[in-house]
Design a binder for these strands. Structure first.
Lengths: 260, 260
DNA sequence: TAGTGGTCTAGACCACAGA
DNA sequence: CTGTGGTCTAGACCACTAA
């Protein structure tokens, strides 16, 4: 009775609407529910569905996409686990807002002694767009001569600086990133602004002794032990999006990691 | 046609077999698939299903539990995400072995420069069973005067010590934990040995300066910066199972955290 | 009371692995 | 070829929310 849905979803141009296939063939290597999830992701990326918006009910979407409610639900469940959507029984399904504190908090792991997130004020030291260096080519999987944004900024809490960050982001992914306002954002809201969906990230943690210039910025002594945070954030499609090297003067703060 | 399955699963004694209910009522606050998942967990805990074993097919289990295949599948999916089971298309569903390197690796985050896990040799410094102190009461959610196992051990790589661990575990959860062999295990295989299923864990990371006695054990200088790892591991039912305070001489190693 | 997401059922076919 | 898990369908009822 049923063959699988074809791949028109994945292959069609981003501007064309969903084409309900009449003959169901599995031309794509992806199962139907993943194809549908990809359309959901695209609608968010393109801005058709905006943060905080209520999207149509699962039965409406199932009708629109010409799939069963069960398949639609599975696609929505995947989108939820990808942090694209939030569902609330009796209310509806909502597009997540990654500029909200709860979603941005995901990328800041420094905590106060009482377990609260450190809420710092940021100061931009420098922003430049330039060609990649060797390390960036490797870490961000870029080609030689490609362009990157490099941002250096300092975080302070109650007027006292505690963290220096060096960011590198492929310029291709962040067109028009120039303003200090943009450069002050966390990666989550910044990515949302340019229609990028974020996936996994990993972090290598070690201890550095403060170099003279860094000690100067952090108003501490040369040689003070700093927590070194070497982090790469990837997109939902597993493309490196940001490389961050941070050096953090902990004092009574700590880095919090949670595993499920 | 169908009302919900009742809670006989959750409420029946561990020794009784699954009772297929004839009248389906939702006496439990848990949906059916979670009740079924709990029976799966119990079968593993009790040793009825042993590590690496192939369990019956989903259709067989659905018949046994008197639930639909869809519900059985959902229960199995939850068990997979809880790391109880692994499923392989065409082969079957297997009970995870938490004494295997892949599962034990989940709890060791120290990596070599080439990203490989540090494989150290462990030495037991001391094992005692005693009454809880104030910190343990809080961290392990215990009552005053309850008993804990305290283990101090040192990890070395190529003969050079790099990490000192102080462990505290509720004695109630680890009856008969006395031998140095048991005390040398990672938490995952140790928990499996006593039929405990592990869930989330969290870790607070900061920097300590080596105290004289610790510097002595780690064969370094007093005041050397050490990575301090303050970790609590919880059971699947969210009961604290182990509190670990580790101090780690990193040198060219680092702590690796991955987020999905 | 209407509409949403959450749970459950019954049964089909697809994809993969091993005998 | 047989049996396993993986995907998909169609439709029912439950639980929650807000008008």
């Amino acid at each position: 009775m049923h063959n699988y849905q074809d791949a028109q979803l994945l292959d069609q141009s981003p501007d064309e609407p969903w084409q309900a296939p009449s003959a169901r063939r599995r031309l794509s290597s992806h199962p139907l529910y993943l194809q549908v999830r990809n359309v959901i992701a695209q609608r968010i990326t393109s801005g058709e569905w905006k943060p905080r918006m209520t999207i149509p009910s699962e039965s409406e979407l199932a009708r629109e996409f010409n799939v069963s409610v069960g398949t639609m639900r599975k696609a929505l469940d995947v989108a939820v686990s990808d942090r694209l959507l939030t569902r609330r029984q009796g209310r509806g399904t909502f597009v997540n807002d990654h500029s909200s504190t709860e979603h941005a908090a995901r990328y800041s792991n420094i905590r106060n002694p009482e377990d609260s997130h450190v809420r710092g004020e940021v100061t931009i030291v420098s922003i430049i767009e330039t060609s990649v260096n060797e390390t960036e080519v490797i870490r961000l999987r870029m080609r030689p001569k490609e362009r990157v944004h490099r941002i250096r900024r300092v975080w302070a809490s109650q007027g006292k600086p505690y963290m220096l960050e060096d960011l590198a982001m492929p310029a291709r992914l962040f067109p028009g990133l120039v303003s200090p306002e943009d450069a002050s954002l966390h990666i989550a809201p910044l990515a949302q602004k340019v229609g990028l969906l974020l996936g996994r990230h990993d972090e290598r943690i070690s201890i550095d002794k403060a170099a003279p210039d860094i000690a100067d910025v952090l108003k501490t002594d040369t040689g003070t032990p700093l927590l070194r945070l070497d982090r790469i954030v990837y997109s939902l499609q597993d493309v490196p999006v940001e490389w961050r090297l941070a050096q953090c003067l902990l004092e009574d703060r700590y880095y919090f990691a949670q595993y499920r």
